[in-house]
Measured scan of single mutants.
Amino acid sequence: TRVETATETAWISLVTALHLVLGLSAVLGLLLLRWQFPAHYRRLRHALW
């Protein structure tokens, strides 16, 4: 049971790290898009909202 718990903890930390990385890359990508294509971003936002 001790090994299982350790594996579970490792998986949880791995998944958390993955989610953090994905979230950060998504935010960075959005910022980059907004910085590179302001007109396109505004049009996209206008279409979405």
Rank of each mutant, 00 (worst) to 15 (best):
1 T>L: 13
1 T>W: 09
1 T>M: 14
1 T>E: 10
2 R>Q: 14
2 R>P: 12
2 R>H: 11
3 V>E: 00
4 E>S: 11
4 E>C: 08
4 E>G: 08
4 E>W: 10
4 E>M: 15
4 E>R: 10
5 T>H: 01
5 T>E: 00
6 A>Y: 07
7 T>D: 05
7 T>R: 10
7 T>E: 05
7 T>G: 10
7 T>K: 13
8 E>G: 03
8 E>R: 03
8 E>I: 03
9 T>W: 14
9 T>V: 13
9 T>N: 10
9 T>M: 13
9 T>E: 08
9 T>Q: 12
9 T>L: 12
9 T>C: 08
10 A>P: 05
10 A>L: 05
10 A>S: 13
11 W>T: 05
11 W>S: 01
12 I>P: 02
12 I>K: 12
13 S>A: 14
14 L>R: 03
14 L>I: 09
14 L>W: 00
15 V>W: 08
15 V>C: 06
16 T>C: 11
16 T>K: 01
16 T>I: 14
17 A>I: 11
17 A>E: 00
18 L>C: 01
18 L>D: 02
19 H>F: 05
20 L>V: 14
20 L>Y: 03
20 L>I: 12
20 L>P: 05
21 V>R: 02
22 L>Q: 03
22 L>D: 00
22 L>C: 14
23 G>L: 14
24 L>H: 04
24 L>G: 07
24 L>M: 13
25 S>R: 04
26 A>P: 00
26 A>C: 13
26 A>D: 00
27 V>G: 10
27 V>M: 13
28 L>V: 00
28 L>T: 02
29 G>F: 11
29 G>R: 03
29 G>A: 15
29 G>E: 04
29 G>P: 07
30 L>Q: 01
30 L>T: 08
31 L>Q: 08
31 L>Y: 13
32 L>S: 09
32 L>K: 05
33 L>W: 07
33 L>M: 11
34 R>G: 05
35 W>R: 15
35 W>H: 15
35 W>I: 15
35 W>L: 15
36 Q>I: 15
36 Q>E: 13
36 Q>T: 15
36 Q>S: 15
37 F>I: 07
38 P>N: 15
38 P>I: 10
39 A>R: 14
40 H>I: 07
40 H>R: 09
40 H>K: 11
40 H>N: 09
40 H>C: 14
41 Y>G: 06
41 Y>H: 09
41 Y>R: 06
41 Y>I: 13
41 Y>W: 15
41 Y>N: 04
42 R>F: 08
42 R>E: 11
42 R>V: 11
43 R>I: 09
43 R>Y: 08
43 R>D: 09
45 R>M: 07
45 R>W: 00
45 R>P: 05
46 H>V: 10
46 H>L: 08
47 A>H: 10
47 A>Y: 09
47 A>R: 14
48 L>Q: 04
48 L>H: 06
49 W>V: 00
49 W>N: 15
49 W>C: 03
49 W>Y: 04
